[in-house]
Amino acid sequence: MAESLMTSDPFFSIAKQNLRSDGRKFDDFRPVLLNCDSVGTANGSAMIRFGNSAVICGITTEVIEPNIETPDEGSVEINVRLPAYCSPKYCMTDSTNDLLVLTQTLKDVVKQSKLIDLKKLCILEAKFAWSLNIELICLNNAGNLLDLCVTAIVAALHSCLLKKTIVSEDNKISYEKNTEPVEVTTYPISTTFSIINGYHSLHPYDWFRET
């Protein structure tokens, strides 16, 4: 009975033809649109679309006092917003759990991939360091949200500029008009796929998603 119900499901009928309802093959990505420097007031930014899913990422920078445990390193902070309008799901349920999981996963990706060498963000050990504050806003969540966010972060970092600094003999900091790019050391890639009854599908719909 279970097998009969499964094979009669429209999804599996389409799967046998290696096609989806939108005409894409199972190994086809969604159409991608990337626009860097899309937020003029940010130090770095990017807006990206995978099909109908869309995320905008903005980066602001500030000089902070380094953490006492890592006096020769700067920091990268990540904040994600999932407004109710980005998905019908969040109009009916709280997005807090999804938000916490996504934010922590992005922090792990940035840290474990060594996307940014935090030591390169240090200006003067134990005194001054750059903090990169990354904010992501989901405009529409039709699946592949993790992939979108990772790609948006990498793209925004590539457009991020830091003011050149001067530290005086009495440890006072000043800023030059000239800027320099943030040094990106790796290029993490996130790809979402699903495996359903033996069928592999890239960029599945949200309710079939398995990352």
Rank of each mutant, 00 (worst) to 15 (best):
G74E: 02
C149K: 07
T61D: 01
S131I: 04
L82H: 03
A155R: 09
C86K: 03
S13V: 14
L106F: 04
V184L: 09
K89D: 01
N141Y: 14
P83A: 07
T179K: 07
E69S: 13
V184Q: 08
S38Y: 05
T211E: 09
V63L: 08
T41Q: 14
L33Q: 15
A42R: 05
R49N: 12
P181R: 10
S113F: 05
G74T: 06
E210L: 05
Y90D: 09
A129T: 01
F26T: 11
K172V: 05
S4G: 07
A42K: 11
L124Q: 06
H158A: 04
W130T: 04
V182R: 10
Y175Q: 08
T7S: 13
T70Q: 02
G58H: 03
E176N: 06
W207Y: 15
N197R: 12
N178Y: 09
Y90R: 11
K111Y: 06
A15H: 04
I78T: 00
E210D: 15
D27V: 10
G74S: 02
L99Q: 02
N144E: 02
R81M: 05
K164N: 15
I59A: 02
E69I: 11
V32L: 15
L146M: 14
L102K: 06
K119L: 00
S45H: 09
N18K: 10
V101W: 00
R24I: 10
S4A: 14
S38A: 13
D94C: 09
R49A: 11
G51I: 04
S87Y: 07
D9K: 01
C86A: 05
A155G: 04
T41K: 11
P83K: 00
L118Q: 05
F128I: 07
G74H: 00
F26Q: 12
V184W: 03
I189Y: 07
S53M: 04
V101P: 04
N67G: 11
L145G: 10
Y175G: 07
N43D: 15
V182Q: 09
S21L: 11
S113Q: 02
T7D: 12
I137Q: 11
D117T: 09
F12V: 02
I173N: 13
P88E: 12
R49L: 00
P88F: 14
K164Q: 13
I68H: 06
P10R: 08
I173W: 09
S75L: 03
T96Q: 10
S95K: 12
W130S: 10
P71E: 15
I123H: 04
A126L: 00
L132K: 06
K164L: 11
R81Y: 08
E210Y: 05
P83F: 05
M92Y: 13
H158L: 13
I56T: 11
G51C: 01
D147V: 03
V63S: 07
K89I: 04
S201K: 14
P71K: 15
K177E: 13
T60L: 12
L106G: 03
A2H: 02
S201C: 15
L100Q: 14
D9N: 15
E183V: 14
F50P: 08
T105S: 10
F50N: 06
K163C: 05
S38M: 07
I123S: 11
